[in-house]
């Protein structure tokens, strides 16, 4: 089976600091990949490149049938305009560290705005779907609450529901629990676990090692913009070979 996500020789720099250096990765459909690594190693940048919130300098990212941000024409690679790239993003859900719920909309509207304004879904239909999604993340009674009236954990669960409403083929998570109070981390991880068990393909940047160990099919260790080590959760957490991985894990545990 060909991989769902294929990243080839991705490079990215900000000014003269190289943030991603020749990253190559493959993720199969239904796989859960956790990306770990010290602060500043380029994890967020990698996640943002995958849905083209950040433009890479060189390399190729394919998600499903889409060459992200570009198209091939007669063997040449041409950049797509914003309207075209935004079409590609419909298939890729993203959950941010700081939730980024639309602050002028309530929970329900946060979820319906994507389907109605982007996909043109019927309003009534999308409201029903949104209510189902809110139920799935355990927040059916918070339909009409605004983000400022929700706890961090609740906001993040709404954010996950918002991403799911677009029926993505891939979900990106950038440290979804790092901005949460310890007591609400669990409820978000629970929702993510269920999503993983349901067969969603997920790329998760996380510092939650216990969670990674439990759900990840593959763990990627990044440092200084490079992939230091990649393998099954079992291999990385129990038999890491690279000294940098070992040192990082020791520090985290």
């Amino acid at each position: 089976m060909s991989p769902l996500v294929k990243i080839e020789n991705l490079c990215k720099s900000f000014g003269n600091s190289d943030v991603l250096k020749d990253i190559s990765l493959e993720i199969k459909k239904g796989e859960v990949m956790c990306i770990i690594g010290p602060s500043g190693s380029g994890k967020t940048t990698l996640a943002r490149c995958i849905n083209f919130l950040e433009t890479c300098d060189s390399g190729k990212i394919t998600v499903g049938n889409d060459l992200i941000g570009f198209k091939e024409l007669n063997g040449k690679i041409i950049p797509l305009n914003e309207t075209k790239t935004s079409k590609q993003r419909r298939n890729i859900g993203m959950v941010f560290q700081k939730f980024n719920l639309f602050s002028h909309l309530n929970a329900l509207e946060n979820i319906t705005i994507g389907p109605t304004k982007v996909l043109g879904t019927d309003v009534k239909e999308s409201i029903d779907e949104a209510k189902d999604l809110l139920k799935r993340v355990g927040l059916e009674e918070k339909c009409y609450s605004y983000p400022s009236q929700l706890s961090g954990g609740q906001q993040q669960r709404v954010a996950i529901a918002r991403a799911l409403a677009m029926k993505p083929i891939l979900m990106l998570f950038d440290e979804p629990t790092s901005a949460l109070d310890p007591e609400t981390v669990g409820e978000v991880l629970e929702v993510m676990k269920e999503l993983a068990n349901g067969g969603m393909t997920m790329i998760i940047v996380t510092h939650e090692m216990g969670f990674a160990k439990e759900v990840a099919d593959k763990v990627v260790m990044m440092d200084h913009g490079q992939i230091v080590e990649i393998g099954s959760a079992e291999k990385i957490f129990s038999n890491a070979t690279n000294p940098r991985t070992k040192a990082f894990l020791e520090m985290m545990l």
């Binding site: 941010f96 980024n100 705005i113 677009m166």
Partner: peptide, 22 residues
């Protein structure tokens, strides 16, 4: 916050749609 714009783009909104609704 820039995050509002990021989130709008992440649900597949074009720049115009993001401007108009977010």
């Amino acid at each position: 916050d820039r995050g509002q714009f990021d989130a709008a783009r992440a649900v597949g909104m074009s720049p115009f749609t993001a401007m108009r609704w977010i």
